[in-house]
Amino acid sequence: MTARVLVADDQSVVREGLVLLLGLLPGIEVVGSAADGEAVLRLVADTRPDVVLMDLRMPRMDGVEATRRIRAEFPDTQVVVLTTYSDDESVFAALRAGARGFLTKSADAEDIARAVKAVMDGDAQLDPGVQRRLLNTVAGSPERPSPPAQPVASQPVPAPSVTSQPVTPRSAQPAPSLPDGLTAREAQVLRLIARGLSNGEIAASLFISEATVKTHINNLFTKTGLRDRAQAVVYAYRQGIADPSADS
């Protein structure tokens, strides 16, 4: 299947270079190029590409807003973000806007082709530098505020009864429940996804088949409402399932 790709970048040298590069790749057809966000939207409406390679910083409408509009108006078109620096502050905003792939502009032809195929297959593709930025952003976000303390009752508090039940030893206490009904194995798979492991690497780490890994991923995505691995990384850190120290 040929992937129909639209290139969006305000720098003519970069834009023309990407068009030439993509034209040499088998299985990819360039259907147009644009220098600003408004032109991107017009071309998407006219050509209905499978994938847009989107620069984040463009005039008239930036890449984040263009991504948001594309995903709202043309849900069959996926967006792969191209960023000059992996620590671009707009990367996280582009994720929230619906981008499924993130590459730095130093990506080679193989990286781009892999990202295009991944998003067309419903997966996410993150450049390692971009993923580190994403992990650092989520791991460094402020914790959720604790609920306010309950007011102290005005009545005198009775002394504890000497017949009160003994405290259950820590080893006998039940394990804390996981969010959204995740099983322990699904949480383990999610933790490894957050560390950037592929399905094959997860399978090797847990001594299970890759097909079993895919089943666990499908189950946890269904339970949590997640769409892709990029969202899974954010979810894992926000729910405290991932261990930030493992990525340092």
Rank of each mutant, 00 (worst) to 15 (best):
D180W: 12
P128L: 12
D121V: 04
S161I: 04
P145G: 09
V119T: 12
R191Q: 15
P142C: 05
R114D: 05
V157M: 07
G122C: 10
S205D: 07
D123M: 15
V189R: 04
G129V: 07
A194P: 03
D123L: 13
G140C: 05
I208Y: 05
Q165H: 01
L135D: 11
S154N: 04
G196S: 04
L103D: 05
S146K: 10
E110M: 08
G122V: 13
V138G: 06
A172C: 07
T183E: 00
A211L: 08
L178G: 04
A124N: 02
V138I: 09
R185G: 11
A115D: 02
L134W: 11
R133C: 14
R114Q: 05
A115H: 01
V162W: 00
V116H: 07
Q155N: 06
P179M: 07
P169T: 11
A139W: 06
T104R: 04
R114A: 13
T137N: 06
S171R: 12
A97E: 02
L197V: 00
Q150E: 13
A149W: 02
P145V: 14
L134C: 15
L192T: 06
V119G: 14
D123F: 12
S209V: 11
P158S: 06
E186C: 02
T168F: 03
R191E: 10
E210K: 12
A203V: 09
D180M: 15
I112Y: 01
Q131S: 08
P174K: 08
R114C: 04
R191L: 13
P147D: 03
G129E: 06
P176I: 07
V167Q: 01
V130E: 02
A211P: 01
P156I: 12
R170C: 01
D127W: 09
P179C: 13
A203D: 03
F102N: 05
T183F: 03
Q188I: 07
L192N: 09
I193H: 07
G200M: 06
L135W: 08
Q155I: 11
L135T: 12
L197P: 00
N136W: 08
A107R: 04
R144T: 01
K117Q: 10
E201C: 08
L190D: 07
G98Y: 03
L134M: 15
S205A: 15
